[in-house]
């Protein structure tokens, strides 16, 4: 009985392997067939599209449409995307028009309403690449799936309007850590459009990671409108927020910043002290050399490092103070001063 079962299993295995081998061979044949078809249809279709785009005022003839419709939906997407990417912005609408005529966009829109997230993602990506009417994507900025949301947010960076920025800024407040990169990247790319919504968020949010992310965007944007919020958040109880706020102050500058930053040199948190020194160096605030030099005896390596680098960057006064530290009784400070002074001119560690 068991023996028969085992022999049956062995026979089943042979059949499975045979079927899988046939599947591989069939797939290889399918690929070869596709390659031949590609040569026959794809190249012709591309030539046809080139001709159409060079004279977009004429309508796409029925015969031309039939030729293009012989391609599968994926092939149509491939060829149109490849073409759109190689065209100037003002030439792309002709490609978008072809996509509309062929029904590529209609299907993509349908996909964006699917309950299966890979299809929604596919729809978003096609619309991003082949459509200038992208209203379906805007609805997906708040999609439940992080992948889809991220793709929609990517698109938002290409639409740097105040409305779009206002739409995506609250996403910074989401607890889900997924795709924070896409959001930060999009908001940095939006530059000025993102300033007002971000300022609102900085004024109202109390969540430290959210504030830190918003300040990170502010530092890259370096817009002076962030100054009041950054000054206020430099007094926050969260060290993470204070670090980020110091970075913003260093990027924006202004008469109010150095006193605040000098005040942070005595902060309990070593990362805050280091960030404050870095910001003062970025501001090239030579009035702070004495206070920065005092941090050469700091117990934290990263603070001593930032202090030494800042002194090196802050002109002759800084360099003289740094040189004095080479004979300091504090061996940690002396070693750091030696290391920084031996850096080649202009080199950053």
């Amino acid at each position: 009985m068991i023996l028969e079962l085992l022999l049956g299993l062995a026979a089943g295995e042979v059949a499975t392997v045979a079927a899988l081998v046939i599947a591989i061979a069939a797939h290889a044949s399918l690929l070869r067939w596709r390659a031949r078809r590609h040569e026959r249809l794809y190249l012709g279709a591309r030539q046809l599209l080139y001709e159409y785009i060079s004279d977009p005022l004429r309508p796409l003839s029925d015969q031309e449409q039939r030729s293009l419709r012989r391609l599968t939906w994926n092939e149509q997407v491939d060829i149109l995307v490849a073409l759109a990417r190689s065209l100037a912005l003002d030439e792309r609408p002709a490609v978008f028009e072809v996509a509309r005529i062929l029904g590529v966009l209609e299907k993509a829109k349908r996909l964006t309403t699917s309950c299966f997230w890979p299809w929604r993602l596919k729809g978003v990506r096609v619309l991003m690449l082949l459509s200038d009417n992208r209203s379906p994507i805007a609805q997906l900025v708040a999609d439940g799936n992080a992948e889809v949301r991220s793709a929609a947010v990517e698109w938002a960076a290409d639409e740097p309007t105040a409305e779009m920025a206002a739409l995506i800024t609250p996403l910074l407040d989401r607890a889900a850590p997924q795709y924070r990169f896409a959001l930060l990247d999009a908001m940095i790319r939006m530059r000025g459009s993102a300033v007002e919504p971000l300022c609102n968020l900085l004024r109202t949010s109390t969540d430290a990671p959210t504030l830190a992310s918003a300040l990170k965007i502010a530092r890259h944007t370096a817009d002076p409108r962030f100054l009041p919020e950054a000054l206020s958040l430099a007094q926050s109880e969260s060290a993470e927020v204070v670090c980020a706020a110091a970075g913003v102050l260093g990027a924006i500058g202004g008469a109010e910043c150095p006193p605040i930053l000098r005040g942070l040199l005595g902060h309990d948190d070593e990362f805050v002290r280091a960030a404050a020194i870095r910001a003062l160096r970025d501001l090239d605030d030579r009035d702070s050399v004495e206070e920065i030099a005092a941090r050469m005896n700091d117990r934290s390596w990263s603070v001593r490092r930032e202090a030494a680098l800042a002194l090196r960057a802050l002109g002759a006064d800084g360099a003289i103070l740094l040189r004095r530290f080479t004979s300091s009784p504090d061996l940690f400070a002396a070693e750091m001063a030696e290391q920084v002074l031996s850096l080649p001119f202009g080199a950053t560690p």
Binding site: I2, L3, L6, L7, L9, A10, E13, V14, T16, V17, L20, V21, A23, I24, H27, A28
Partner: peptide
Amino acid sequence: ATFAIAFFAIAYGLGIVFSTATLVLEEV
């Protein structure tokens, strides 16, 4: 003897099944 041969055939055969299935994933 028969049992042993059948068992080894299945054991090693299953290895081949999994390898072939992996090749299908790679191919596709």
